[in-house]
Design a protein around this nucleic acid. Sequence first.
DNA 1: TGTACATCAGTGAACGCGCGTTCACTGATGTAC
DNA 2: TGTACATCAGTGAACGCGCGTTCACTGATGTAC
Lengths: 195, 195
Amino acid sequence: MRYTKDHKQQTRQRIIATAGRRLKQDGIDGSGVATLMKDAGLTNGTLYAYFSSKDHLVATAVADQMRAQHEGIVAQAAPGRAGLEQIIRWYFTPDQRDNVADGCPNAALLDEIARSTDPTRQAYTDGALVLIDGFAARLAPHDPPSARLKALSLLGMMAGTLQLSRALTDRQLADQLLEQGIRNALALIDAGQHN
Amino acid sequence: MRYTKDHKQQTRQRIIATAGRRLKQDGIDGSGVATLMKDAGLTNGTLYAYFSSKDHLVATAVADQMRAQHEGIVAQAAPGRAGLEQIIRWYFTPDQRDNVADGCPNAALLDEIARSTDPTRQAYTDGALVLIDGFAARLAPHDPPSARLKALSLLGMMAGTLQLSRALTDRQLADQLLEQGIRNALALIDAGQHN
DNA sequence: TGTACATCAGTGAACGCGCGTTCACTGATGTAC
DNA sequence: TGTACATCAGTGAACGCGCGTTCACTGATGTAC
């Protein structure tokens, strides 16, 4: 080969990473192809040398964001309940709320993903299942599958609470909501098996 | 006046109501002015006889959706815990999940609202405060203000869980999540004051 | 070592289209006398 | 009662613009000999 495969691979990764940030910040419909490519230091036409369509890039970026969330946050956390508490306390910090581009893809994109095409929804679902396996392993170390639903509901609860904190114009109330979110999430993980 | 004020008022209300449905179904960025007006049986240009911009219509429609949610669902519910359980059980039905246009504006639009202009975020915040007052009155009939935060977090948790159920491609898992949502929401409202 | 050539990542103008907004206009309505 | 007129809700073409996508092209790179 004339060029190293490496270079094109790296560019592809850069496009996916910067697109993930832009999509979270401006939304899927709110991010144009020209902007997405400019973020990666490229021009609009280049997209189609890497992806068959904007939709394909979106699905890939969503998958990558979910993977990054898992590898960077969940997999890094301590095992057991301590790790979950760590994740929860980080999740509900004002920093994570205010920095949408670096933040949780679930909170930033969930309702737009629900309206998206099947490939994007599938990419999201696959990513969510990996994420919640990390939760479940810490919820029930000796029987993770038994905690899958609880883990899934924890994810939904966390994302919704963060979205709401972002939407409110009353900053003080929004901050108090984050603290309440921590309390609720901890109560949820500490609730008995019958819950 | 040559025309009855009534007629124009009715048309305005019709625009707001159909726009609310369209916005929830296709998103804010996903709903064009021509479509929004066509839904009300009018042409694109008419919008500006009623609103100063699309943004103004969006903010008005969001306010109306929140008001409708309050008047149609929350205010109708029985007083006390029984009413809350009623709301929660309705909220997490597959019907409410699958019928986005008739459903909850929080679940349909929360992350787009968080990205919206101030007037829209303000309209949303005002509506959310009314909604959670209805929750709080049922959570703590003798001291509603003490339950405001819990009510707010309940709203976030409900919306996020519904969004997640909508986004998943695995329908069986999505349905199980709704059931888990009911259990979590009931556990939250039954938790002691220390939560 | 130098030169001709094949490769291919990336460019950027152009396509048709829908966006939000403006505005000259139509035509049904109610009023004036 | 009939007619001229003022009002105004609603129309729909047109504005400039950005959208997603296509494609002829550029130019830097590594290869062949």
